[in-house]
């Protein structure tokens, strides 16, 4: 079954390049996303800030 699946990968170098790019990007972003809890909490609240109407 593995060999049958692999038969579809006729352009192996390109497929590997694509896979590697994805994995590197995914890991980079995952590590990069480890921000402080306070920052994440603050950003999540952004849409909930009510507009303050100015009466001047």
């Amino acid at each position: 079954m593995i060999s049958e699946g692999l038969r579809h990968f006729t352009e192996i170098p390109l497929s590997i390049v694509g896979m590697l790019l994805f994995i590197v990007t995914f890991i980079t972003v995952t590590i990069w996303s480890f921000l402080s809890r306070q920052d994440l909490h603050e950003m999540a609240q952004m849409p909930l800030h009510e507009e303050e109407i100015s009466h001047e």
Binding site: T25, F26, V29, T30, L40, H41, A44, L48
Partner: peptide, 21 residues
């Protein structure tokens, strides 16, 4: 959705990861 429900987004970290992916 957060505005209508008056709730913050569930996971801002998840939004970062899923956006770039």
């Amino acid at each position: 959705l957060p505005k209508a429900a008056n709730r913050p987004v569930y996971s801002y970290r998840l939004s970062i990861i899923h956006f770039w992916a």
